Simulated assay, not measured.
Amino acid sequence: MGADDFAVRRIPQTAPRIISADEAWHGEAPYAQDALALDFHGAHDEDFGPRPTRSGMLPEPGPFVARLAQAVVEVVSGQRPAPQLIRHAAPTVYAVLARQAMVAGRRRAPGPQRAAVVRRVRVCEPADGVVEACAVVVAHGRVRALALRLEGLDGRWLVTALTIG
């Protein structure tokens, strides 16, 4: 066999064609076995991201805020791991909670600790899908205040602002 016995052939294109977002959403695109290649340049920004949820489609805010306030106080005092609140807190709020939990974990004395107790919760709804609440908390012989703002996003309450006094 000599060098003339071999021919150079182009490699065939095997990637699927780019499918527009309209074709994908309306089911007009053909099935592709490979990874689905979508063109999202035609999609609208409102198709993606968090979707507001009305209060009627969410759990009752009073009991939810009481349980959430108890969990927040336990995280801040180092008695509960911070990742348990990641689903219910906005990223900026969660970052502050995780940092406070880390500091509290370093300062925490060994042995049993008396748990913080939420004494009273007040809730108001300034708008549909928005709750502003405050809680009175007794922890380690001190009375503290907790203020929260929750917004209904993606079918759940999400803490978007938090202040611990």
Score class of each variant (00 low, 15 high):
residue 59 P to G: 04
residue 9 R to H: 12
residue 157 W to M: 00
residue 54 R to K: 12
residue 76 V to I: 15
residue 69 A to G: 09
residue 56 G to V: 07
residue 3 A to F: 10
residue 52 P to D: 09
residue 153 L to W: 10
residue 133 A to E: 05
residue 57 M to P: 00
residue 79 Q to F: 08
residue 122 R to D: 13
residue 99 R to Q: 09
residue 129 G to D: 00
residue 126 P to Y: 01
residue 86 I to N: 11
residue 79 Q to G: 15
residue 158 L to S: 01
residue 38 L to W: 04
residue 27 G to F: 01
residue 36 L to V: 14
residue 155 G to D: 09
residue 134 C to S: 15
residue 5 D to R: 13
residue 130 V to A: 06
residue 107 R to I: 01
residue 114 R to E: 13
residue 65 V to K: 04
residue 71 A to E: 14
residue 1 M to A: 13
residue 20 S to A: 12
residue 126 P to K: 08
residue 80 R to E: 07
residue 49 G to N: 05
residue 110 P to S: 08
residue 128 D to Q: 03
residue 10 R to E: 14
residue 3 A to I: 10
residue 10 R to Y: 01
residue 139 A to D: 14
residue 142 R to G: 02
residue 19 I to D: 01
residue 91 P to H: 06
residue 78 G to N: 04
residue 6 F to R: 13
residue 98 A to R: 11
residue 128 D to N: 14
residue 79 Q to S: 13
residue 113 Q to H: 14
residue 106 R to G: 09
residue 28 E to H: 12
residue 140 H to S: 13
residue 61 P to C: 05
residue 25 W to T: 11
residue 56 G to R: 14
residue 13 Q to I: 07
residue 87 R to I: 06
residue 90 A to G: 10
residue 51 R to S: 06
residue 19 I to S: 06
residue 82 A to Y: 03
residue 59 P to S: 06
residue 3 A to E: 15
residue 96 V to E: 14
residue 65 V to R: 08
residue 162 L to G: 09
residue 39 D to Q: 01
residue 119 R to L: 08
residue 43 A to D: 12
residue 79 Q to R: 15
residue 74 E to W: 13
residue 20 S to V: 00
residue 85 L to K: 02
residue 107 R to P: 05
residue 6 F to I: 13
residue 129 G to E: 07
residue 128 D to C: 04
residue 156 R to P: 00
residue 67 R to G: 15
residue 10 R to F: 06
residue 63 P to L: 04
residue 23 E to F: 03
residue 11 I to L: 12
residue 150 L to A: 01
residue 8 V to T: 15
residue 88 H to C: 11
residue 72 V to N: 02
residue 48 F to I: 08
